[in-house]
Nucleic acid binder design. Structure first.
Lengths: 193, 193
DNA sequence: CTCATCCTTGACAAGGATGTCAAGTTTGAC
DNA sequence: GTCAAACTTGACATCCTTGTCAAGGATGAG
């Protein structure tokens, strides 16, 4: 078996994403990736160079899909509904699986100190674009727009989502996270005021 | 040089805290601790057993001081001022040093999946007690109390602080974090409404 | 059909990290 | 002063991870 690539790149990257999601960039080993994908370690080195290159491919795919889904969740309803949809999405995203796999971006961000520039830039990229999406969603909402500047508020929302990811790691379940998010939205948009 | 302990335990734990704070429980090695404290690896094993035992001591000391400081920051002024004081405190705490060292609790929480039960419990303990402190501070504030249930709000505040810690790791500086916190407080307590 | 190219595989070298231990030294109790 | 107890030190065994590579096999262009 040789001569031409024996594995499906898409599939390998998809499986690698799962591994990174569960273990983190730093804790996942090439051994782990080889075992999960069924591709020999040597072949992975040959095909991609090193672990980080594989991670970047996997992360880029993940980030693209994530932002896309987020954008559509942020497009429906008034300001409160948009945020609710969005929180619903990311909470399900991070509490999915058993045990829940958490938030890949947040986990990666926390490894910032030991990560390369390329990795750090990806994290910043995702957070930045997410902030823009949220800002736009708030600004263009049909009603229920809060009095505070949409850009500043967007950053607060992004920050809060990062907090949800940490709380999930600390042991909070889907239900508790959703309740926290609901309280956050209520306090922010304040329909009860 | 032997016979009786040659090092100051307090000092070793203090130095170990610095190391863990910068590198994280998982990334700090016994080698690192030995080098930073000036105590041989063998002696550390002899005195404490393993890395985690050292970490737990260091973390307990840290958590105690942190919660104490937080409580006093949360005791001054009205609801908005209390939160502002508190955010000021934790933002300085996590952006201190160069490069900034981040938030130890958050970093530790993110390693939850590979940490022992004892470590996870410490993290949950800190977050739980912090939540109680904040709830009490909001409930007992002389004025400016928001309409929303203080306990729920407290959890939202804790979650937001975790988010700030992540944003710090993602590259946000003290100024940006403070601005986000100010926006958060304004949106929550809403003096401008 | 031939052969250069590309892929796979298993092995190897090197560099950490953990945890253990025997040997040596100092202390303090008696 | 003696001696058991406690601490320090350096070394050792083990395991894991990374990255490289030579050897061998399959492919497809010409």
């Amino acid at each position: 078996m040789a001569g031409v690539r024996q594995f499906d790149e898409q599939e390998v990257i998809a499986v690698a994403l799962e591994v990174f999601w569960r273990k983190g960039l730093h804790d996942a080993t090439m051994q782990d990736l080889a075992a999960a994908t069924g591709v020999q370690r040597g072949s992975l080195y040959h095909a991609y160079g090193d672990k980080e290159a594989i991670f970047l491919r996997a992360f880029d795919g993940y980030a693209g899909k994530f932002l896309e889904t987020a954008a559509s969740a942020l497009a429906q309803g008034d300001a409160a509904a948009r945020l609710q949809n969005f929180f619903e999405l990311i909470i399900v995203n991070m509490t999915d699986g058993s045990p829940p796999r958490g938030c890949l971006t947040t986990r990666t961000a926390l490894d910032a100190a030991i990560s390369s520039t390329a990795v750090r830039q990806r994290v910043q990229g995702v957070l930045g674009r997410l902030e823009q999406l949220i800002g736009k969603a708030i600004r263009s909402a049909p009603k229920g727009r809060p009095a505070i500047d949409a850009n500043r508020l967007a950053r607060v929302v992004v920050t809060f989502t990062r907090g949800l990811a940490v709380m999930e790691r600390a042991g909070y379940g889907r239900k508790q996270l959703k309740e926290a998010a609901a309280t956050f939205v209520a306090a922010l948009i304040g329909d009860a005021r």
